[in-house]
Amino acid sequence: MAIDRLTGEHSIAFIRSEQLFDLARSHSLWYMAFGIACCAIEGLMSASGPRFDFDRMGVFFRASPRQADVMIVAGTVNLKMAETVRMLYDQMPEPKWVVAMGACANTGGPFREYPNVVLGVDKIVPVDVYIPGCPPRPESVQYAFIELQKKIRNRTGERLAARRDRT
């Protein structure tokens, strides 16, 4: 649902409140400044730099997990880090989403054979969007955020459809 369908002079929109909130949320995805490895340079730093400028999509970094909506897992998660990743995820307020960025966060990537490396961050936290690449370009991260926005906007509709199917 695009925002311009709701706006316009003298227009009145009837919308489920949860859908309205999701619409607002999808345009204000604050991610946590939590760069683990190489991907952080591309997905967090270049992304907030002037060329890619995620800020224009409402995607901006917050230093604290308490203020963040999205966690971009940008890098290799090892056994020592796994606990921290889970702890940070638990500290984030609901609703929250996780983007697994890069081969390491998806499956372990080039380091998958090392026994100290966790084979994908989805073993620790639920992942909403996976981005392939080593490292993915900032454009890929941008695309992932667009997909995440779609997912957030559609979730009420999907839930209602599921309820309809049940009854």
Binding site: L79, K80, T107, G108, R112, Y114, P115, N116, L119
Partner: peptide, 26 residues
């Protein structure tokens, strides 16, 4: 310094890296 308790001495030759099957069956 680098690993947590319980992790083997990883640079020993007796400690093998994960095999392709282990990785595939993740």
């Amino acid at each position: 310094l680098l690993t947590t308790d319980g992790v083997a001495a990883l640079l020993r030759k007796s400690v093998a890296v994960r095999s392709a099957e282990e990785v595939r069956a993740r």
